[in-house]
Each structure stands twice: as C-alpha cells, then as structure tokens.
Write a protein that binds this DNA or RNA. Structure first.
Lengths: 111, 111
DNA sequence: TATATAATTCAATTGTCATTGAATTATATT
DNA sequence: AATATAATTCAATGACAATTGAATTATATA
C-alpha cells in the first residue's frame, strides 16, 4: 500500500527528462555540476535544482573535492539504487498477474 | 539516449499516485472501471482518464465483456510489463556504475 | 421506444513544477 | 584585501496536468 506511494514519488523524481538525463550520467560515475552542464547543455543553476531533488529522494550523494572544495561531486547511491531495483523487480513481477474473474460491484443489480 | 526519453515518459505515467494505484490493481488481474472505483474510491470519469493515459503508454489493454458489452475490462499488458521490467533492470544495473575520475571541463584553467 | 447502466468526453479550474535571470554563498588564488 | 571560480539560492513566469461537474455515448433490457 504505502510502498506504492513511495514508488510513485520515485517515479515522479525520475519523470523529468532533464533530471533523468542527469541521473543517468551519475549512474555512469562521479560528476561535478559543470561537467554535467557541458554534457547535456543545461544551465548550472537548473542542474543544481535537479541535483537537489535527486538528493532529497536519496538517489544520489555528494561530497566536496579534497584538493579544491569549490567542486562538489555527485554520484548515484549504489545501496539505494539496488534496493530500488529490487523494488521494481517485485512490483513488475509477472507472478503477481493472476487469472481473475472480474467482479463488478454493481453487477448484482442486473441479470 | 532515446531509450532514456522513453523511460522518462513511462515514469511520468506512473508518477501519479492515483494512476499508479490503478495500475497496481490491474497488475493483480482484470478489473472493470467501476470495480476500480469501488476499491480506490475515485470517481469513474477520473478513472477513465487515467486508464486512457495508461493505455496510450501501452501499459494496459482492454476488451469488452462477452455477455454484456457495457463493461470494459482492463488489465496490465504482460509482454509490455516484462519488457519494461528488463529495461529497468538494465538501467539500474550496478555494473554501469564505474569508478571514475571526474573531469571538470573548466578545470584546465586552474592549477 | 423508453429507461437504466457502464463508461467516456468535454469544459473549466487549480495547483504544481520546470525553467529563466539575477543575486548570493563558498572556496581558492594572487 | 581583491578577484575568480563553482555552485547554490531566490523570485518570477509559464505551461502542463490532475481534478471536478455536467453532458454524451454505447450497450442492454423491458
């Protein structure tokens, strides 16, 4: 029940094309904001916004560069990703799909 | 590239809580509009709307009842579902996540 | 034909959210 | 201290989409 609501909010986060493109980059490894900006041609402030949304959803993590703390590095959170992956596996499992005789609640009135 | 856009539109379709609840019911087997309405307490015209969106996305199919064609039965499309399931598996595959030295495109300017 | 049921379509409203441009913060270098 | 860079925050705008209520369509029965 509630898990479905969780899923819907994850779907919502990944539903935006720009945000999904960013997340996809981060699935491929660590990136800073401006490298993302160069790759997908989107202004940095907008990327910042999407990174925040992804962070709040727990899909990505961030840390500042050791040498030079002006850079902030982002990457997908492996633990969260694999948990989400399993959730989706279960949600779309064929074994959930039963042969079922549909029952219309108002059907009794007829016949 | 384009596959990601496809994914984002599927996410969009499943991002709405009401719609996801409907889809979840249909994953469990065939339902008519009014049985859905009874189970999730949502007006039928709204359910109709969401069913249409799910249909256009190819996630569900529909057919009229044999005996009484006033009823329209809906269910999740097994082929599409398993294909989507595989797509998500690949998208969230841990093996995609590389150890990677981030390269800031403007980093050359410094040092 | 007239009535009832299941479902859809239509028009209007409302709220959410991506996007934009400007300003601000944090860190580093000279 | 002054300047430059990376990134974020803020305020405003615009567009899309969920929801609602009323009207309409499709099918069945008497």
């Amino acid at each position: 029940m509630n898990e479905i609501m969780d899923l819907s909010s994850v779907f919502k986060v990944l539903a935006d094309p720009t945000r999904l493109a960013i997340f996809n980059l981060l699935m491929g490894g660590v990136h800073c904001n401006c490298e993302i900006a160069e790759k997908i041609n989107v202004p940095m402030n907008l990327i910042s916004h999407h990174l925040k949304v992804l962070s709040k959803a727990g899909l990505i993590t961030s840390f500042r560069k050791e040498n030079d703390a002006r850079w902030i590095y982002y990457c997908a959170d492996p633990i969260r990703i694999s948990s989400l992956r399993q959730q989706l596996q279960d949600f779309l499992d064929k074994n959930r799909m039963f042969e079922r005789e549909p029952i219309c609640p108002n059907g009794k009135k007829l016949k």
